[in-house]
Computed example of a mutant assay.
Amino acid sequence: MKLLLAVYQEAITKSRKDLRGPHVLRVEHITQIRRIAKDLEIVVTSQEKDAKRHIQDADIIAGFPMTIPPLGNAVNLKWIHSFSAGMDRVLTPEIVNSSVLCSNSSGIHKTPIAEHVIGFMLIFTRGFLKTIANQQKCLWQKDESITELFGKTVLIIGLGNIGSEVARLSHAFGAHIHAISQEIREPLDFIKMVKKPSAMNRMLPKADFVISCLPYTKETHHFFDLEKFKLMKPSAIFINIGRGGLVHEKDLITGVKRKIIAGVALDVTEIEPLPRTSPLWKMPNVIITPHQSGLSEKYMDRAIERFCMNLGAFLADQPLPNMVDKKQGY
């Protein structure tokens, strides 16, 4: 059985052993995989042409959505595993309608992304945007409008691994946590209220922070539009760490310009990289980070650990822990 690992960067050879970065595959990662499957043929490449050649007889491919090659010639393929959570680039009509299993790395991003969200919220509550701007002008000026995260209402839309961790950390700061979730699971003691999506219009007006943690599907495309922004408080902050396509960006820009909402923090945008012509770049109450909230030095360690967990299940002919519903897209 052949496994193709299509990655951004690898530090397998001696010449690359000092390579650093969140997406670097290392020798110890290969060793970890071999402990699960000693007889597995493992091919590692960061080159697109090599990935296209090896996919032809690969049984398993694991990689990032941007590094997984076209799968038209993958005649032996039985399973695709993504080192990312998003699957929209992988789930082509051919794959959706095939017998190929799909899994992702949902769960590995919750710590860095939740910390990123906390950082976004503190930037707004503690007035860091204004303070840093004043520092650039060598201006010593107290901001008497700054406030606290304590006591604020945080509405989390999408209560998966990431949303739940955002809820836990926000609660640690003393915030009141409300959530919208398709599935009402056992209540978590740090979440005050969980409602189905049908309650969205009633919950948006109560929130100081609205945090989008939804997956991107056909059903969630442009989920956040002007009508939803109009339901939010004029003082509300909207944060998106899900996918750019969840937000109708022109409506968001309108909402900020008209002061329908007070501020925005985006780690993802509809078009990436965000075009230089976008008004979002120069809006004083908008924070943009370049789709990096999930990154840390622990990224590939967690990704390989999650892959090995799924590999063990695959070889034992058991359900994959991170199985993706190809019809739903997550």
Rank of each mutant, 00 (worst) to 15 (best):
K2G: 02
E10S: 15
S15G: 00
D18Q: 09
G21K: 02
R26P: 03
E28H: 13
H29D: 14
E41I: 14
V44M: 11
E48V: 07
K52L: 11
R53M: 08
D57P: 03
P69M: 02
L71E: 10
V75G: 04
N76Y: 05
K78H: 10
W79G: 10
I80Q: 10
I80K: 06
H81F: 15
S82H: 00
S84Q: 01
A85F: 01
V96W: 15
K110C: 01
F128R: 08
K130C: 00
I132D: 02
Q136I: 04
W140R: 01
V154S: 00
G160P: 00
I162T: 12
I162R: 01
G163C: 07
A172I: 07
A172S: 14
A175H: 02
Q182C: 02
Q182R: 12
E183F: 10
E183W: 03
E186T: 15
F190E: 07
I191T: 05
K195S: 09
S198R: 09
N201F: 15
L204E: 09
C213T: 14
K218G: 10
E219A: 14
F223N: 03
D225L: 03
E227S: 12
K230R: 14
K233W: 09
F238E: 06
G242M: 05
L246W: 04
K257P: 01
R258F: 01
V264S: 12
E272M: 13
P273Q: 05
P275S: 04
S278V: 00
S278L: 06
S278G: 12
V286I: 07
L295Q: 09
S296D: 15
D301H: 09
F314N: 02
A316V: 15
Q318A: 08
K326R: 11
K327C: 07
K327L: 11
